[in-house]
């Protein structure tokens, strides 16, 4: 019975979401590959003297995982999950704010100080 039910569940879920799992995966994969491509095109043009700010700036952007942390924490589905999500928010926010501030500090130094 169970093995019969499970494909039906999958199908039901797919119609509920209006998108079958394979299309969803391909949609995200498209986004992933195109963004990688854009990244390669743009970043090859960054001159070596800006490599440190580029590293720390992109590092801050990798803290985007905070979006996932917010959704899973705000959902408050389980105590354990909420706790993990809360930790994730803390760490990701340190990453995001720390990354942008450090990059800003670094870039400020590339400008001649105003006397």
């Amino acid at each position: 019975m169970n093995c019969l039910l499970s494909p039906m569940l999958l199908l039901a879920n797919a119609t509920a979401l209006g998108e079958d799992p394979a299309s969803r995966f391909i949609r995200l994969l498209t986004v992933f590959l195109l963004a990688m491509w854009v990244g390669f095109e743009v970043i090859t043009k960054v001159p070596p003297r800006l490599h440190t700010p580029l590293t720390s700036g992109s590092n801050a952007i990798s803290g985007i995982t905070v979006v996932g942390a917010i959704i899973v924490t705000g959902e408050m589905a389980t105590g354990f999950g909420t706790f993990l999500g809360f930790l994730a928010i803390l760490l990701a926010m340190i990453n995001v704010v720390g990354g942008f501030v450090v990059t800003h500090r670094m870039l400020q130094m590339f400008h001649p100080k105003k006397k």
Binding site: V31, L33, A35, M36, W37, F40, L54, T55, S62
Partner: peptide, 22 residues
């Protein structure tokens, strides 16, 4: 990909590409 969210995928892959190039 876990939470089906495109902004994570886009920002993540930009950083991934940047790191690979460097």
């Amino acid at each position: 990909f876990v939470i089906d969210n495109s902004v994570l995928v886009i920002a993540g892959s930009l950083v991934g590409a940047s790191g690979l190039i460097l």
